[in-house]
């Protein structure tokens, strides 16, 4: 297949830990088969920072904890035909969402002022124009833009990601066996 007929795929890690991307790399030698099927557009895997064109599939790791995450996620929605939430952070907020039952001010105070390991005599909370503004809560991706498929897991196993991608790229329905849809 020529590069032009290959499916274009983009990936990003928003409020995630990169574990889902690691899991994608965990498909081992199947990565060669993947390279036959797709070309990577914007992705931390190839370090392409901006979309170079329209993509068939976008993989979203992580939910949205700040305005930059929201911007990137909207950009993905704009450029990708199919968006897939991968991992519990994207599908339900995950570990970052542990702060969601605590008011934001309390979180910031604990992190930058009152925490037992914090030394911050001026009591300043980071607030630079370069820093994306933090959101009141961490939002799962589908509460910000429309998401077409969800692959939960922390992370989803390499097999889960592989099976889902191959089904999509070969125009088959994404019907994963029982073992491959897990929340942990």
């Amino acid at each position: 297949m020529g590069e032009n007929q290959k499916a274009r795929i983009a990936t990003t890690s928003l409020a995630g830990c990169f574990g889902c991307h690691m899991s994608l790399l965990d498909i081992d030698e199947r990565i060669l088969q993947l390279a036959e099927l797709v070309v990577f557009d914007k992705s931390p895997i190839n370090d392409i920072k901006q979309f170079t064109g329209r993509c068939d599939v976008g993989l979203i790791e992580g939910g949205c904890c700040n305005e930059h995450n929201v911007e990137v996620l909207r950009d993905f929605r704009k450029h990708c035909d199919i968006l897939i939430s991968i991992g519990d952070c994207a599908t339900m907020g995950g570990i970052p969402a542990l702060r969601n039952t605590v008011p934001l001010q309390e979180c910031l105070d604990e992190a930058y002022r009152d925490g037992p390991s914090v030394h911050n005599p001026s009591g300043m909370i980071p607030n630079d124009v370069e820093l994306p503004l933090i959101l009141d809560k961490v939002y799962p991706a589908h509460e910000v833009v429309k998401i077409d498929y969800h692959l939960p897991g922390c992370p989803p196993s390499a097999d889960t990601l592989w099976e889902a991608l191959v089904a999509l790229l070969t125009a088959k329905p994404v019907e994963l066996p029982y073992e491959l849809v897990k929340y942990d």
Binding site: S85, T91, M92, G93, A97, T101, P140, H150, L151, P152
Partner: peptide, 10 residues
């Protein structure tokens, strides 16, 4: 694979 309702975070 993900709930269709909005999370409450109670």
């Amino acid at each position: 694979t993900a709930p269709s309702f909005t999370y409450q975070w109670q």
